[in-house]
Computed example of a mutant assay.
Amino acid sequence: MTTGATITHYELLRVSRRERPEGVRAAYRRLAQQFHPDKQRGNADAERVMAAINQAYAVLSDPAQRADYDRALDSGFSHSRPASLDEVRAHDRAWPWWLLFGTIAFSAAAIGTVVYKSYMPGVRAAGQVLTSATPAR
């Protein structure tokens, strides 16, 4: 399978160009079972991946469209496709570390402020002290 955003319908369904229609149908069914949005609850990319799988199957299951598609591939035509299934899986597993870091930094700042204000009750803001700390007249 190629890396990047340009893949063929054959690569998307993980079949060879010589695959018989029965093999294409079996590959489609296997991938549809695995990546159907109903089975991928919470996966934002599931609909996009399923749409790409459906489009690839629609082209490769129709003999006339498949012949046209093969001629286009032979002539060097390439079209932009959604990311490969492996890239979608890697994206799903990736944790947004920046979000974790931001949450920890914000929590530390909030806790630090509370601790600072509780141990330094006479300090309200930079350069300001409580009026009760000044002598009364």
Score class of each variant (00 low, 15 high):
residue 58 A to C: 04
residue 77 F to Q: 15
residue 67 A to M: 08
residue 120 M to P: 00
residue 92 D to H: 06
residue 77 F to T: 13
residue 100 L to Q: 13
residue 62 D to P: 04
residue 27 A to W: 00
residue 88 V to I: 12
residue 91 H to P: 02
residue 110 A to K: 07
residue 137 R to C: 11
residue 136 A to H: 09
residue 134 T to K: 12
residue 38 D to F: 08
residue 64 A to C: 04
residue 131 T to G: 10
residue 95 W to S: 14
residue 93 R to G: 07
residue 79 H to Q: 11
residue 120 M to T: 13
residue 89 R to C: 03
residue 126 A to K: 07
residue 137 R to F: 10
residue 12 L to A: 03
residue 29 R to I: 10
residue 33 Q to V: 14
residue 66 R to Y: 02
residue 120 M to Q: 12
residue 11 E to M: 04
residue 114 V to I: 14
residue 60 L to N: 00
residue 119 Y to R: 14
residue 68 D to N: 13
residue 115 V to P: 01
residue 82 P to L: 09
residue 3 T to K: 08
residue 110 A to R: 10
residue 116 Y to Q: 01
residue 83 A to I: 05
residue 9 H to K: 09
residue 131 T to M: 14
residue 116 Y to R: 04
residue 10 Y to E: 02
residue 99 L to F: 03
residue 6 T to G: 02
residue 55 Q to F: 04
residue 32 A to S: 14
residue 114 V to Y: 09
residue 2 T to W: 07
residue 123 V to A: 09
residue 58 A to Q: 11
residue 17 R to H: 04
residue 28 Y to Q: 05
residue 120 M to G: 02
residue 112 G to K: 03
residue 115 V to M: 05
residue 25 R to D: 14
residue 38 D to H: 12
residue 117 K to N: 03
residue 42 G to Y: 06
residue 15 V to H: 06
residue 63 P to N: 14
residue 37 P to N: 12
residue 27 A to T: 08
residue 136 A to M: 05
residue 125 A to M: 08
residue 10 Y to M: 06
residue 96 P to V: 08
residue 85 L to P: 00
residue 32 A to T: 06
residue 102 G to I: 08
residue 94 A to H: 13
residue 127 G to V: 05
residue 113 T to R: 03
residue 6 T to P: 04
residue 88 V to K: 00
residue 69 Y to H: 05
residue 134 T to I: 12
residue 31 L to K: 02
residue 116 Y to C: 06
residue 128 Q to P: 04
residue 113 T to D: 07
residue 88 V to T: 06
residue 50 M to V: 02
residue 10 Y to T: 03
residue 36 H to P: 00
residue 87 E to Y: 05
residue 117 K to I: 01
residue 92 D to G: 06
residue 115 V to R: 08
residue 48 R to E: 15
residue 78 S to Q: 09
residue 79 H to N: 09
residue 2 T to N: 12
residue 24 V to L: 05
residue 80 S to I: 12
residue 54 N to R: 13
residue 79 H to E: 10
residue 17 R to A: 11
residue 95 W to C: 08
residue 79 H to T: 12
residue 63 P to Y: 12
residue 57 Y to P: 00
residue 5 A to V: 15
residue 26 A to S: 12
residue 87 E to R: 07
residue 44 A to P: 03
residue 83 A to L: 09
residue 43 N to V: 13
residue 82 P to R: 06
residue 40 Q to E: 08
residue 45 D to W: 04
residue 15 V to K: 03
residue 99 L to Y: 06
residue 109 A to P: 03
residue 41 R to Y: 10
residue 111 I to C: 11
residue 102 G to M: 13
residue 19 E to M: 10
residue 85 L to N: 02
residue 44 A to T: 11
residue 94 A to P: 02
residue 105 A to T: 15
residue 18 R to L: 11
residue 96 P to G: 07
residue 3 T to A: 14
residue 66 R to S: 03
residue 96 P to N: 15
residue 89 R to P: 01
residue 81 R to G: 08
residue 97 W to V: 14
residue 88 V to P: 00
residue 52 A to W: 00
residue 41 R to D: 12
residue 35 F to C: 04
residue 70 D to F: 00
residue 25 R to C: 05
residue 78 S to N: 04
residue 16 S to R: 11
residue 123 V to W: 00
residue 117 K to R: 10
residue 20 R to L: 12
